[in-house]
Design a protein around this nucleic acid. Structure first.
Lengths: 208, 208
DNA sequence: GCTCCGAATTTACTCGGAGTAACAAATGAG
DNA sequence: CTCATTTGTTACTCCGAGTAAATTCGGAGC
């Protein structure tokens, strides 16, 4: 990142200086929160300058604290995925039988993304770099992979299938959500029902 | 100042406009073919200037013939989707029972994309504009939507589910393919098997 | 045959955004 | 007081998309 320039012999090591002139201490987390806020209000195609300005900060500060746009997107994808996971868990634990759990998870995902459309769109389309998309997918798929892999291993079968299944589910969710957000071709419950109808049979038998 | 002349040889300081009558008529299809070619060889992050140069054409010509980058991406997505559909059909007709047809289609999709990785990556990540992605998805999903909708209508049920199902399948394929292309975490047949395992049960029952 | 007009093209530009280098301000140690 | 170090800001470069102005040639009119 930053290249420290060594001018002369470091006679004395100094503590990091304090902010100048009563400035606000800018923290990576604060910057991310501000970025999420401006994206939510201004839309998914916010520029780095806009994000910096919204955090009452200048661009180099943003860059030093968060990194470049890829890093920002990546970090915000963490935020979004965490939020989605919370919503999914909330819905899932309220159901007893597995299929209802799955359907609850679908609903939780959809409503979480619906509440954060712009962040979803930013994270999904914000970068032409596929590395970012890949990171987001991996993060989204992490639990699913683990879940499937343990089930699969317990059944004494090849756990490599877990990755494919997790990716497939993540992809299905992503695309359905994207199209649904843009077209609103039906209501949330219908989407959740149909998605469950399509995916649940496979998921139910996937562990075996 | 501008130093654009430095790259060109001073001998051929200028190549004036070529005769219109005997010259090469540049056609939209030719430009698209050239674009596909350069993307395949140079990679998915080819610039418009590179594409134009590869077609032995200047940028304004490219822009007049095919439109801006979004239009180019859209057109190339047509090319890719058509190619995929051909491969899918080829594999599908060689199978008799429905499940084998589905699995064949999966294999056809994967091998077609594998043969055109760069084009796939260009089309998928080439634009930060979600409209392009949306168009690609709609195009990919068109047959699936129709297929599901007729099956669904024949069963006397709501055909709106067809869209969700088609989007889900397209998304599952897209993401699985993206991750598989980048990581090569297993071979094609394994991916096809696992994808079929996950999706087929739902697809088989989806019409009813 | 010569000149001028229109169509197609190329050069050279603008515009916008990502990312960064150079500069200024301020602070604590010696 | 002075200087080194850190922090923040201005102003820049770079690069690529998209386009406007300039240029040349084929062909029509004189």
């Amino acid at each position: 990142m930053s290249k420290r320039l060594s001018a002369t012999s470091p006679r004395t090591r100094r503590r990091p200086g304090r902010p100048v002139g009563g400035g606000v201490v800018v923290d990576r987390a604060q910057l991310l929160a501000a970025a999420a806020h401006v994206i939510r209000s201004e839309g998914p195609d916010a520029t780095m300058a806009e994000i910096a300005a919204a955090a009452t900060v200048t661009k180099p500060i943003l860059y030093r604290a968060v990194g470049d746009r890829r890093a920002l997107t990546f970090a915000l994808s963490e935020v979004l995925v965490d939020r989605i996971n919370i919503a999914v868990e909330e819905r899932r634990v309220n159901a007893t039988d597995p299929r209802a759990q799955f359907e609850g998870a679908v609903r939780g995902y959809l409503s979480a993304v619906d509440a954060d459309r712009n962040l979803f769109l930013f994270v999904n389309g914000g970068s032409q770099d596929t590395d970012v998309i890949r990171g987001l997918i991996d993060r989204s798929a992490a639990q699913l992979i683990e879940l499937f892999a343990t089930a699969r291993s317990a059944a004494g079968r090849d756990p490599i299938a877990a990755r494919t299944w997790a990716y497939a589910i993540v992809g299905a969710f992503q695309v359905v959500t994207l199209m649904w957000l843009r077209d609103a071709y039906c209501d949330l419950d219908t989407v959740a029902d149909d998605l469950t109808l399509l995916l649940w049979p496979g998921v139910a038998t996937a562990g075996s």
